[in-house]
């Protein structure tokens, strides 16, 4: 149990990279990127977690009761919101590419081509 969280984080990142490398559709690839990113969230929240402690919100229980680390939560929270905007940016680029090339297969998209 004490290393399960770290293993899960490593697994998620690894399988995300595998998905990107073998992807045949850009939208799929962007989904795989999201999986890689969720690995970092699992890692960070795992780092701040403490057994038998409550959430770091002292509304129902008074300050002083054991609580988990609020710092990593703050770091992750904003990152999640930004990640959605970034996904949007990626999807927008992919859409424009599709308009011009008619394909979204990453293995057929390259910026420059040989002049023959």
């Amino acid at each position: 149990m004490s290393i399960l969280a770290w293993c899960v984080a490593a697994w998620l990142f690894g399988i995300g990279v595998y998905g990107i490398v073998t992807s045949r559709h850009y939208v799929h690839l962007i989904g795989c990127l999201a999986v890689c990113q969720s690995a970092t969230y699992v890692l960070l929240l795992g780092i701040g977690f403490r057994w038998h402690a409550g959430p770091p919100i002292f509304y129902d229980h008074p300050p002083g009761t054991p609580a988990v680390d609020p710092v990593v939560q703050a770091l992750v929270l904003t990152d999640i919101v930004v990640s959605a905007a970034m996904t949007a940016l990626l999807l927008a680029i992919a859409l424009q590419v599709h308009k011009r090339r008619g394909t979204l297969d990453p293995q057929h998209l390259r910026p420059f081509r040989q002049e023959k």
Partner: peptide, 29 residues
């Protein structure tokens, strides 16, 4: 993991906004 704040933002982003963006992108494509 005792992170209700993060869970709320993940639920709104991860299960609503992101899938919506994906769907719209696929439809547009």
């Amino acid at each position: 993991l005792q992170a209700p704040d993060v869970a709320l933002s993940e639920i709104t982003i991860g299960t609503v906004v992101t899938p919506l963006l994906f769907f719209v992108a696929l439809a547009a494509a």
